[in-house]
Design a protein around this nucleic acid. Structure first.
Lengths: 234, 234
DNA sequence: ACGCTAGTTTGCTCAACCGCAAGGAATGAG
DNA sequence: CTCATTCCTTGCGGTTGAGCAAACTAGCGT
């Protein structure tokens, strides 16, 4: 297999305090894979044999309920680990990561995980932090679901996406990957109808500008005010 | 400080593969504390200086929204770690654990955590599994919130409590700690009114038997059927 | 350039569930 | 034993947002 360049991953916080030699040893065992839009990296329920790192692109992790309803559990951004099911004491993958944009992932066989933890406790600590943050996020989301109305939830979700995937443009901040109304609905626990209505209302007030699988935030401050529940008139 | 007996914690999965000497060393640095009903072990937002293990009793971890709404993030059962905020890259506690029953907790100063991870990667791995499971749970809950109606959510919550804190009795399974309607509401994201109504309806169908801060599941099968969405007639 | 498909907008209707309000039972304190 | 507190029950509107249906449009392939 072709060598993988160190520089690809060196800047990631996950590998921040790892010496070069160690890093190279890790990369030697990795493989890479391109994933095209709409393709799944692996499938929910499938036996977990590898763990992954997203290098480039964007993934949405979906789960399907027994009744067939689909929801988006989270969005994977470049630099995030995902699919490390065996670290979580289960042998199948709990969700399906689908490419929302052209993506490149890196992966290792499960056995490598044990070695990493043994030889490089630092990395283990980092990984734990990552999971911890994810847990925080999940709790935040639960709290929002419990206590907030749809409009505020959607506002929060958009703000979060903006932070994580926003890209400054001339007339606002653009979310950097194809994102349909349906996606936002599945992220916030509503229907695409409601999301569409909300976006329309916001657009007429000049807060955002929508498009097909596109979203541009023009007035971050007003959006934040709405997320905090300040009755948004005008 | 009085020595803490090894047998107290030996049976916990968290310490499963730790040698006696190591365990003793850990216990030597621990302190213990009794918590009475309604008392908080620590407060949300407070600076995190220690991490904890619940030995006996039951805690409900609450969060308060900026608007003052309270929700129960999770229930801590004996043997669970909690309040290990610094492992999650934050220096304050994200929630307030309140004793729902007379409880006994064990705690260590934060510095111990680093030592543990260094000297005993096994424990770190176990801890990570714990967090991982918690993340799973959170995702399950999110999915339920998104897709299920109140009745099914409450059914699920009750079933989960039953698994984790159920105690076989003559005419059903009793939930082993004081649990008000309000608590259930805060666990499932509804109001106590709705919960009360549901319990009444269930009781009249012989599925559960309620009481003041008490709940007895008489017909687990029917409850499960309801949680799965099978229209519950009769 | 054309049609096709997937994504989007919008209107209408209806049920679930919350909020308010008022009364009722159980537990504990004195 | 009595009172007070806390928890629980139940009724009644009112809203929110889901569900259904139908038209619209941007972009893609041929």
């Amino acid at each position: 297999m072709a060598d993988i360049d160190r520089s690809l991953v060196r800047s990631l916080p996950l590998f921040a305090n790892m010496v070069d030699a160690e890093l190279d040893r890790l990369l030697a065992r990795a493989s890479m894979r391109r994933v095209t839009i709409g393709e799944a990296v692996f499938e929910q329920g499938q036996k977990a044999s590898q763990f992954y790192l997203l290098l480039h692109g964007r993934l949405k992790v979906t789960q399907v309920t027994p009744e067939g309803q689909q929801i988006i559990v989270r969005v994977v951004h470049p630099g995030d680990l995902f699919g490390f099911a065996q670290a979580l004491q289960r042998d199948d993958y709990p969700g399906t990561p689908i490419a929302a944009a052209e993506s490149v992932v890196m992966c290792w066989p499960n056995e490598v995980w044990g070695d990493i933890v043994e030889h490089n406790p630092n990395l283990a600590v980092n990984a734990m932090r990552t999971i911890g943050q994810r847990l925080q996020e999940a709790h935040t989301r639960i709290r929002e679901m419990f206590t907030e109305e749809v409009e505020r939830r959607v506002a929060h979700a958009v703000l979060r996406l903006m932070e994580q995937a926003g890209h400054r443009e001339e007339d606002g901040i653009h979310i950097d990957f194809p994102l349909s109304r349906q996606d936002v609905a599945e992220l916030t626990g509503t229907t695409l109808h409601t999301v569409s209505r909300l976006f329309s209302a916001w657009e007429s007030r000049g807060i955002v500008k929508g498009g097909r699988q596109k979203l541009l935030v023009r007035d971050k401050a007003r959006l934040e005010a709405m997320a905090e529940g300040n009755a948004a008139d005008t």
